[in-house]
């Protein structure tokens, strides 16, 4: 049976190193299977987080050969078996142990987004075309790979000023909802810090749900921020025509 060499990060937020493990490869194997084999045969204390092994729970995010990916969605036959495969924890979050990171930052950002607020006495009928946009964003499995790859968090560590792409799509799904009346534009600008995003689209590149994060959520929100803060002529027209 062919063997592939894995270099897996072992350590915690204080530090650590890549440890070599040989894994026997069988057909159809994914990187998460390789981690199971290492746990079963070589390192029972290897920490990994996983749940579904079906690319639906968003738990098994890691960096495989430097690319933020789901371990359960990365087949070994897509990797070069002649080179060692590196598996490291997500870099934008503090490491708890080995491949497990502390992603609680995300839940704290989420709490700052005002929830869905319907009009009093809402008629709950909606047409499909009115919710199409929000439904794309609802596909999110909260794997936080987009957060991990976003250079604003990953390289510039702007966790206090920038909420990250996952939360901009959540804000977009609420803002674009036909029955929601809450106004989140000021918080999208100031608290989620949308101006920090320079639309370089890495979030879109890594999203396993193939959500068009930048084109369909962030840029439309940036345009809404422009409507509010940077478009004096548009504002005048709205005042005179009484349109929203």
């Amino acid at each position: 049976m062919p063997e592939v060499n894995f270099k897996v990060f072992r350590g915690n937020s204080e530090g650590g190193e890549e440890v070599d493990y040989k894994v026997e490869v069988t057909e159809g194997m994914v990187v998460l299977d390789a981690m199971f084999q290492i746990q079963q045969t070589k390192a029972p204390d290897l920490a990994i987080r996983w749940n579904c092994k079906a690319a639906k729970c968003g738990s098994c995010s890691a960096e495989i050969n430097g690319k933020p990916s789901l371990m359960c969605k990365t087949r070994l036959d897509t990797l070069d078996p002649s080179k060692p495969v590196t598996v490291r924890p997500m870099r934008a979050f503090p490491i708890i142990k080995d491949l497990v990171t502390d992603v609680s930052f995300n839940y704290r950002v989420n709490k700052t987004i005002p929830p869905f607020k319907p009009k009093p006495g809402t008629d709950w009928k909606m047409l499909q075309e009115d919710v199409d946009r929000a439904q794309e964003f609802r596909k999110c499995i909260e794997c936080f790979l987009c957060q991990d790859t976003c250079h604003v968090l990953r390289d510039h560590a702007k966790h206090e000023q920038f909420g990250g792409p996952r939360w901009l799509i959540r804000a977009a799904s609420l803002e674009m909802h036909p029955l929601d009346v809450e106004d989140r534009i000021p918080m999208i600008r100031e608290k989620l810090g949308i101006g920090f995003c320079n639309i370089t689209k890495c979030c879109t590149e890594v999203c396993p749900e193939e959500i068009h994060i930048t084109d369909n959520a962030i840029i439309p929100l940036k345009e809404r921020v422009v409507d509010r803060y940077y478009d004096p002529i548009g504002k005048l027209i709205r005042i005179f025509t009484g349109n929203k």
Partner: peptide
């Protein structure tokens, strides 16, 4: 927002062009 009890991540850890890709 940084996780309590952990070191806040420091900016610019990697350096230009540094990657494992």
């Amino acid at each position: 927002r940084n996780a309590p009890g952990t070191q806040p991540l420091t900016p610019g850890k990697a350096g230009l062009g540094v990657t494992q890709r």
